[in-house]
Design a binder for these strands. Structure first.
Ligand SMILES: [Zn+2]
Length: 424
DNA sequence: CGTATTTGACCGGCGC
DNA sequence: GCGCCGGTCAAATACG
């Protein structure tokens, strides 16, 4: 358990607007905080604006709340961490998109998979322990320990509002998502949407409108790259590589400004899938690892050869310390899967979707949602159409859907098929 | 021999 | 324009 990692998510979005909003709201408070934060600030600067951070921080706090779960204590730590982190991350803000949805999906796929677990949990909810399943969910570490799973990530909304997930929900993780540029885009609502898609959707749009903002001009907006939504999540872990079930190829590493720890850049190895992730350890609290995902996977996910996703039990990770290689951490990402689901939620309607989302999540037990939400999330949201944004859109479309659908089937196939996965 | 990682060069954006 | 910076590319290298 020591190893347990708690993950926290929250979204980052750059969305200026939101941020601004948030700022306005929180503004005052934040300032003070910021000062305190100092340390974090630096980071923040890099990543995002201070302001944002502030807002986010608040959020974070909420999010963090605890994880609970069976396991024990870790919570405490987590929470603390969260606080700090949040400040750090500041950037994020906005909604989160993500994934929960995928949980569901997975579950469908693999019985074992955590998804299932999740669902249950979720539904049950909140309080329950997320932890347990969480493990399953992720491949990683268990064995080792680790971690992280214990908590699961929940998505939370990040947006300013923030949700509080906490209370009930067991897990501590928090997430936030945001579209980056979107912010920029945002100006034009259009642009934003595009990029953001997922998240945005409901939430953002509204929000944005409200805010005013000056902003930059969009310039490129769509054109160049649209950007994809991003969301970050924090994990408390000694290990730095987590396995999230996807395979990643490291394509870069850079020193982080004020941190002794470097930031690693990874890209999903699946063809046609342009999802990227960045992993870095918090300088403030070395036990925390922040990973930021950008984009959605087009494929359900690569499982390992055998059943479960990456080996649940297996091993791996542990030693991980070393560098890890390829894969790296975990996280849930969004999945499309769900696409279909029906889902309950209604979320978006509300004004801020984000909130709604969040709430939902929290209330329900977290997650969930999204998927359904439809639009927003990245996961399913995209659909093909969008996908294109960056790279190839073509690929995924079909693949994804199909894959998704037949979950069980897939699994079988998968097993047999391929995947080579490694495992080791 | 195929693939993943390492790591410095490169590039575009931004502030000055 | 210049330099800083975050992010990415890609040649060289590791690994198995
Ligand atoms: Zn992928």
């Amino acid at each position: 358990y020591h190893h347990l990692i708690d993950s926290i998510f929250f979204s980052l979005t750059y969305m200026e607007k939101k941020i601004e909003k948030d700022l306005h709201h929180h503004h005052h408070h934040h300032q003070q905080h910021q000062k305190e934060i100092k340390n974090t600030e630096t980071k923040i600067e890099q990543h995002q604006e201070q302001k944002i951070s502030q807002a986010s921080s608040n959020i974070m706090a909420n999010l963090v709340t605890s994880s609970s779960s069976d396991h024990h204590h870790h919570h405490h730590q987590l929470e603390l961490a969260a606080g700090n982190l949040s400040s750090i991350f500041g950037d994020t803000s906005s909604s989160l998109p993500f994934p929960y949805s995928y949980f569901e999906d997975h579950s469908s796929n693999n019985p074992n998979s955590f998804l299932d677990l999740l669902r249950q949990d979720h539904q049950f909810a909140s309080s329950s322990n997320s932890s347990s399943f969480s493990f399953d969910a992720f491949p990683l570490p268990n064995n080792n320990t680790n971690p992280f799973f214990t908590d699961m990530p929940l998505p939370q909304a990040e947006s300013s509002e923030v949700v509080n997930t906490a209370p009930t929900s067991p897990n501590s993780t928090s997430v936030s998502s945001s579209s980056n540029e979107a912010a920029n885009d945002n100006n034009n609502s259009i642009g934003k949407e595009v990029t953001v898609k997922d998240q945005e959707e409901g939430d953002q749009q509204q929000e944005q409108k409200g805010t005013t903002k000056p902003q930059l001009k969009a310039k490129k907006k769509n054109q160049k790259k649209a950007r994809e939504a991003r969301f970050a999540f924090l994990t408390k872990s000694d290990i730095d590589n987590l396995d999230d079930g996807y395979r990643w190829r490291k394509y870069g590493q850079k020193a982080v400004k004020n941190s002794p720890y470097p930031r690693s850049y990874y890209r999903c190895t699946t063809v046609g899938c342009g999802v990227k992730k960045r992993v870095e350890r918090s300088s403030d609290d070395s036990s925390i690892v922040m990973t930021t995902y950008e984009g959605q996977h087009t494929h359900p996910f690569p499982m390992t050869p055998r059943g479960h996703i990456g080996m649940l039990t297996s091993p791996i990770l542990d030693h991980g310390a070393t560098t890890a290689s390829s894969s790296s951490f975990s996280i849930p990402q969004p999945r499309y899967l769900l696409a279909q689901h029906h889902q309950p939620y209604n979320m978006y309607n509300n004004n801020n979707n984000s909130l709604s989302m969040v709430n939902r999540s929290s209330s329900d037990g977290t997650f969930v949602n999204l998927g359904p939400t439809s639009s927003s999330f990245p996961g399913f949201g995209y659909d093909m159409s969008q996908a294109s944004t960056s790279t190839s859109s073509s690929i995924r479309d079909h693949g994804l859907l199909q894959d998704i659908l037949p979950s069980q089937i897939r699994s079988d196939s998968i097993n047999t098929q391929t995947n080579e996965e490694v495992r080791k």
